[in-house]
Write a protein that binds this DNA or RNA. Structure first.
Lengths: 211, 211
DNA sequence: TGACAAAGCGGACTGTAGTCCGTTACGGTG
DNA sequence: CACCGTAACGGACTACAGTCCGCTTTGTCA
C-alpha cells in the first residue's frame, strides 16, 4: 500500500493534516522510536506500538502503510540529516570539494548510518520487498550520486548510481557486519576503492581495500 | 532456523536421508515449483503447498526452515546449472577466457537468471532477511568473482566481490525492471561498464552503459 | 523376523500482520 | 454557535506463518 503522506515531512502535510492526525502521528513515532530502541525491532509487535502510543492499530496502518513504512518513518529524520549536510554542510560532504571526494564522503556517511541503525534498517528495507528503492530518500541519494558521477566521468552514468548504492542494502551490510566480522571502516575502505576505480582511471591504489 | 540439509543436493543427503523423507522432499519441491509458476509466489500459502504435496505443514518447515528456504530450494537447481557452466562449460562463462570476459559473462548469466525468476527470487531473498548471503550458492558466486578479480587486479580484492554482486539483489533488480522500465540488457550493460572500470583502467569505454 | 531407537511426520494450536467498516472528531460554512 | 460533509479512528475480525508434540515409519541389529 502506498503511503498517504511523506512521513514526518511537515511541509508536505501541514496544509491538510488534521489536528488529531498530527497528534497521533507524533505519538506513534515516539512510541515506535522508543520501543525499537529498547528491543530488536523485529520483536516489537505493532499492537504493542499502538498500545503504547494510545491509538488503535488501524491508525498506524492508515498512516504508515505497514511495518516497513513505520520503520522508514522512524529513520526518516536521520536520513534527512545527511541530506541536509550534503546540501548545505561543509565539504567534503557538502558542496565545494571535488566530486570524487564528495562521493567517498557521501558513501561513507551512508555506510555509517546503515551500520549505526542496522536492525531498524533491515526491518525498513526487508519487511516489504523493495521498500528502500521506492522512497524519496533513495531517489535523493541516487540523484546525488548521479550528479557526482556525471561530473567525475564527464558522461551520463546510466545505472551506475544504483550499482554504487547497492552495497549499502541493509541486509548485505548486516551479513557483512554480523556474520563476517567486517567493520564499518572496512566497508568504507572498499567503497572508496570502488569509487577510485570507477572515477579515476589511473593506476590502482594500494592498501585501501578491506581485509 | 538453519537448514538441516543442503536442499536438493543428493550427495549431501544420500548417506542418511530416509526413504520417506526423500519422497516427501520431492513431492514438496514439485508442488512448490508448480504453484509458484502458476501464481505470484507471495500469494501461495504454505498450507496450500502442503495440501498439494500431500504432506503436513510441519514437514515443509522441518525440511526447508521457512518460506524463504523453500523458495531457495526451488531455485537451487537453476543456480547450480550456472555453477556447472562456470566450472565445466565453454568460455567465456567456463574456463579458458580472460578474467574480465569471464566476469562479464558470469554477471550477465546471473542477471539473466534473476530477471527470469524475479518474483521467486524476491521471495527467496526477502522473506527472511539476508537469506541470500547465507547460502552456499552465494558463497560460490563470491568465491568465483573473488578469484577472477584477483587474477584481473593482481591483488587481493577484499570486499569488492560483495560490492560487485550487490546489484544483483532481487529487490533492486525488481525495482529497476518493474518500476523503472530497465531491461535485462541495460543492467548487463551497466555491469559490464562497472567491470571494465574496475578491472581495466584504460580510457572509459563509450556506449556500453544503460539509459 | 521381531523389537527398539530415533528420525520423521502432520495437523492442531498460538500469535501476529494486516483489513474492514461502523463510529467519532474535526473544521469549514451559514 | 450549530450543522454537515468528510477525514480519521479503533478494535473486532480473518487468514496466514511458524511451532509443538504425540504418533508413525524407517532402518538396524541381534
Amino acid at each position: 500500500m502506498a503511503l498517504r503522506f511523506t512521513p514526518t515531512d511537515p511541509a508536505a502535510t501541514a496544509v491538510t493534516e488534521r489536528a488529531d492526525a498530527a497528534r497521533n502521528r507524533r505519538r506513534v513515532l515516539e512510541a515506535a522510536e522508543r520501543l525499537f530502541a529498547e528491543r530488536c525491532p523485529t520483536e516489537v509487535t505493532l499492537d504493542e506500538v499502538a498500545r503504547v502510543a494510545g491509538v488503535g492499530k488501524g491508525t498506524i496502518y492508515r498512516r504508515f502503510g505497514d511495518r516497513a513504512g513505520l520503520a522508514l518513518a522512524v529513520l526518516d529524520a536521520r536520513e534527512r540529516e545527511i541530506q541536509e549536510q550534503v546540501l548545505r554542510g561543509p565539504p567534503p560532504l557538502g558542496p565545494g570539494a571535488p566530486p570524487d571526494a564528495r562521493l567517498r564522503a557521501f558513501l561513507g556517511a551512508l555506510a555509517g548510518m546503515v551500520v549505526a541503525n542496522l536492525r531498524l534498517m533491515v526491518v525498513a528495507e526487508n519487511a516489504t520487498a523493495g521498500a528502500r528503492y521506492r522512497t524519496q530518500v533513495y531517489a535523493g541519494q541516487r540523484l546525488h550520486v548521479a550528479v557526482l558521477l556525471r561530473e567525475g566521468l564527464g558522461a551520463d552514468p546510466g545505472l551506475l548510481p544504483d550499482l554504487v548504492l547497492a552495497p549499502l542494502a541493509a541486509d548485505l551490510v548486516g551479513h557483512l557486519v554480523e556474520e563476517r566480522g567486517v567493520r564499518a571502516e572496512d566497508l568504507t575502505g572498499a567503497l572508496d576503492a570502488l569509487v577510485d576505480r570507477v572515477l579515476a582511471c589511473g593506476p590502482p591504489p594500494s592498501g585501501t581495500m578491506g581485509p
